[in-house]
Design a protein around this nucleic acid. Structure first.
Lengths: 334, 334
DNA sequence: CTGAAAGCGCTAACAT
DNA sequence: ATGTTAGCGCTTTCAG
């Protein structure tokens, strides 16, 4: 049988109000005698507060939703870990959801989180949303955006990286290494991420007086299968190229694989650059040159921002943005 | 302003009880006229049920806890994904927690989950627990164990693999390939997982008339750092060996790395076998021979079992166990 | 310094 | 076929 605040009140011979105040360190003037007594009784009976009941009245659940495309994509576990660590530090817990970039699932999950009355949501917007109202618009739950941008009310903050600048760094690096015909294989250009990286790619070419050629751009999905398909495509099309810049490491690793299996030497014949710096990038051979994103920090900071917003009502109005630094990690694939 | 059941009752000119029944498909005899009316009013006003209030009375939260060591360990994301998929199918959501195999954190999280009144917990027991009461013992929340075994009341089921048999398969494979001096690098032998794999290792040696030598066993942690340390140790100790069986792929990948950097040729000089078959195992070079564990299924089945237990009270008494099949994946490291 | 009482939004007997 | 009512366990005025 679960012990309630009522039982404690009865045993300690005080009122439930007193017990409640003591257990929450609220009452400013409660004799230390009763305080200790109540504490003791609570301890002795192994009292576990019922957060449902509490939330019902306080309208706070100390729970936040984490909505990401897929935890099995190596980009996200670190991020999820950062988020959970910060949440835990602050006494929050995390409900996590995988959308697979599917708009219906996204909708369903946001509704579910509304019903569960999460205090806020850390959200990676689907790469497939091309417009229309995001489900986060409907409710009134504060949202922190992560990785991918999106315009909407309810958005209280953003944790992003400068994708344009990062792509620019990567492609410039390739050019400095003497490469001129650079293929760009990436995810759907509907996502702001892919779009900005595309811009960075173009800008680097332009600043180095290399003509942009649409045929060198292969936009599909941020998945390893797409890396395989796109590499074979570009190879079969017969356009000459001496480097590949990839929208993420998963793609880059597939590119490496296909290229090697078709007899190319990396980086002698073709250089490859990835994006994300997942653990695998340092393990494969040749080591993958890539852009390091601070995944753990992204998750951590997003939750920090969210909790800040929640607990400091004066911050509830303003939007905040953090652009995290990326770093070019040079390995032997270039 | 949030719409409540009361508002709907007022607008639709019925009682809250009626509204409640309709919204939950409960009342067996309600005129379709009122039913439709209530449904319409609910839709029109964008009614979102308050699960707190509901849970408070039903004592069910439709939430389950997933307690694992570390989502950033590549073994777990797939498992977490399987768990979430099944939970989602059944209308449950998942609160996820990382314990880092730390007993204090484990305790803290289990308490937190009790307060949040999760309906059940899917739990990977810390590899460091050597005895004493697990925090899952204290409460009365049904628990499904995953990956690592543990004895305790409240445990309603287990989803495991036959680690002994799997290790036996792996080591036998090495022996068939002509290897005789097989090093075993693994995590702490306090975990049932490491222990059983150790037994399998010993059994395979014995069945092939190879003497077991303690010096060939390096038990530390299931982490890549440990792979590096242990490999260097064994190399420096100067014992001759021609194969390494690793407690997991993370370790195996480190072993591969160190071995290569110290000039050994794989598998010519030394064969390496891992355990888990994480994605990386197929990507690195040489491809890592390993034992494939059905991670996704483990998560999926664990949640399935949990929900079954929760929703069919007649199952609440009996314990259930599933031992999933493993498979030896032969790649070029052997 | 402490208690009484109202009510958060919902469900589930029990009435009608 | 629908309404009345009593809580679920907790917090929070408002009195005393």
């Amino acid at each position: 049988m679960k012990i309630t605040i009522k039982d404690i009140a009865r045993i300690a011979e005080v009122s439930t109000a007193t017990v409640s105040m003591i257990l929450n360190n609220k009452g400013n003037n409660i004799s230390s005698a009763t305080r200790e007594k109540v504490m003791r009784v609570a301890k002795e009976n192994n009292y576990i507060p019922n957060t449902m009941a509490r939330s019902l009245v306080t309208r706070k659940t100390k729970t936040i939703g984490l909505v990401i495309p897929d935890i099995a994509n190596p980009f996200f576990p670190e991020l999820a870990r950062g988020a959970e660590d910060k949440a835990n530090e602050a006494g929050y817990s995390i409900i996590y959801c995988n959308t697979d970039d599917d708009l219906e699932k996204e909708e369903k999950y946001i509704n579910m989180l509304s019903e569960k009355m999460v205090d806020g949501i850390v959200f990676t917007n689907s790469a497939k949303r091309t417009g229309g109202l995001s489900p986060v618009d409907r409710g009134c739950i504060p949202v922190i955006l992560i990785d991918r941008d999106l315009e909407s009310k309810n958005i209280k903050g953003r944790v992003l990286i400068d994708n344009l600048e990062a792509a620019y760094k990567a492609v410039s690096h390739l050019i400095r290494r003497g490469r001129k015909n650079i293929v760009f294989i990436t995810g759907a250009l509907t996502s702001t991420t892919a779009k900005d990286r595309h811009e960075g790619y173009k800008k680097a070419l332009k600043d180095n007086a290399i003509k942009y050629n649409e045929k060198y751009v292969k936009a599909g999905e941020f998945r390893s299968d797409w890396g395989i398909i796109a590499t074979n495509q570009i190879l079969d099309e017969g356009l000459p190229f001496d480097a590949v810049f990839c929208g993420n490491d998963l793609i880059a690793i597939s590119v490496l694989k296909v290229l090697k299996s078709r007899g190319y030497s990396i980086p002698k014949d073709i250089s490859v650059v990835g994006f994300d710096d997942i653990y695998m990038a340092s393990v494969i051979e040749p080591g993958l040159t890539t852009i390091k994103q601070p995944n753990y920090e992204m998750g951590y900071i997003a939750v920090e921002m969210l909790i800040d917003t929640l607990e400091k009502p004066e911050l509830l109005i303003e939007q905040r943005s953090v652009i995290l630094e990326t770093e070019l990690i040079v390995r032997s694939s270039t």
